[in-house]
Design a protein around this nucleic acid. Structure first.
Lengths: 242, 242
DNA sequence: ACGGCGATTTTGACTAATCAAAAATACAAC
DNA sequence: GTTGTATTTTTGATTAGTCAAAATCGCCGT
């Protein structure tokens, strides 16, 4: 009667997939879902139809899939477990932020409510995980803040990295090397449309360049409050402010 | 290619089941395996035949099942994960020893080598879990010590509880209330064959009685060294000495 | 308004794990 | 020795999840 890991994974991917949809769209195409889950397209269709039966998703043949309220609640608890576990592995177990994803991927399906509450408490009810992703509340409430990216934010300002939307360890280590972890400050020096790149100055004053693809994965907070809050303890800090 | 949780559970139960066999026997009857796993007898037969195919167990139709060397190694790593996780949940997460079994039952199948090594290190390479069960080594080595029980040990001696062989939360809380956790000291005052009971005196001098069934679940160390090592810090300590 | 192509669904088949119930077996008792 | 009973194995079926490949659909471009 508890949802299987498979069901949890489908719901989680629908949630994340819908979030990545171009503005306006709300239906996730089956192909995207299938490839996110690493299954054949037909498999996704079959499973989604079953999920629709159980009232966890709305399914429009040939159009795509979206979560119902019940599905969203379940997806949120999975995401909550995943993100709390990730933060726990970094903060308490001393693992690197680029190596916790796979463990969390498995643990998210087996940690009990008792244990996850204990973890939540032990971490002081954190709001974001090591990548800056928001941690849903106990009752399945998610508040997704809207952020600019290094590709869209105003040039010439100091911004605070808020979120890194890529779990690839190689990319994460690159981000870390350049002082771009959530909570760290960076200045956008220039943006060159033609070269498809962004010029940045790190907290340590070093200059470096990021391609558009990479830059768009770094979500930043451009509000002056954020900059003010982050500046003092700029350095190596792991957990994002706020 | 990694063994499924189901396979891991079968191997674990074969290991534990064989351990509970009367002296001399080495083959676990299918019925016992099936009921330990909570599956129908026929299911166990089918699965065990498959395990025999893969060289993890020796199977003698109508006689029972036993682990091969490869099967033992695998069972040991599962037990290692289970017991390290249990100790971790008690020691680091602050959970009670009577409530960690179920979580460990699930976690044992998903914790990565990296994480389990981290846990092992964080706990200082412990030798036993909160119930006194030995934690197999990284390479699948298990050293099962032989213990007396409160039913078989000499009367009139001070003994140290070494291991509690029952995971039932109600029993565990009872054990705790009477100061019988691993590492704690107790004196065997008298044993009454007819009444089927054992008279005990706890570290705090209170007298109480245990039925044979319960007494046989408490494994004790009767060596003087153990008593000497345990006496000083008798009290509430959770982890067993040595 | 038609052709074609890419995305989607359907179909048929497979694997792992399970159960209930029927058949077979071991062994103890007579 | 035969028989009875408890245990074990076999059989036939079921469920969840999956794939490959065939069929179908939606829609874009002319």
């Amino acid at each position: 009667m508890p949802p299987s890991s498979t069901v949890e994974n489908y719901l989680k991917e629908v949630y994340l997939g819908v979030g990545r949809l171009p503005a306006g769209a709300t239906l996730l195409p089956m192909g995207q879902l299938a490839s996110a889950l690493g299954v054949a397209p037909g498999t996704a269709t079959t499973m989604v139809k079953a999920l629709a039966e159980s009232g966890l998703v709305d399914y429009e043949p040939y159009n795509g899939v979206r979560l119902t309220a019940a599905g969203t609640r379940l997806a949120a608890t999975v995401l909550r477990r995943h993100r709390l576990v990730e933060l726990f592995l970094v903060q308490v177990m001393g693992m690197r932020w680029d190596e916790v994803h796979d463990d969390a991927e498995h643990l998210e399906h087996v940690v009990s409510d008792r244990l996850i509450d204990r973890i939540d408490e032990m971490l002081g009810h954190p709001e974001t995980d090591p990548h800056g992703d928001p941690i849903p509340g106990k009752e399945g409430t998610i508040r997704e803040r809207h952020f600019e990216t290094l590709l869209t934010c105003p040039v010439g300002t100091r911004v605070v990295v808020a979120r890194v939307s890529d779990q690839d360890p190689v990319f994460l280590r690159f981000v870390e090397r350049h002082g771009l972890k959530p909570g760290q400050v960076v200045s956008v020096e220039a943006r060159d449309e033609v070269a498809d790149a962004v010029q940045l100055r790190g907290a340590d004053e070093t200059l470096f360049t990021l391609g558009a693809r990479a830059a768009s994965k770094l979500l930043v907070d451009v509000t002056p409050e954020a900059a003010a809050a982050a500046t003092p303890a700029a350095g190596r800090s792991a957990a994002p402010r706020r």
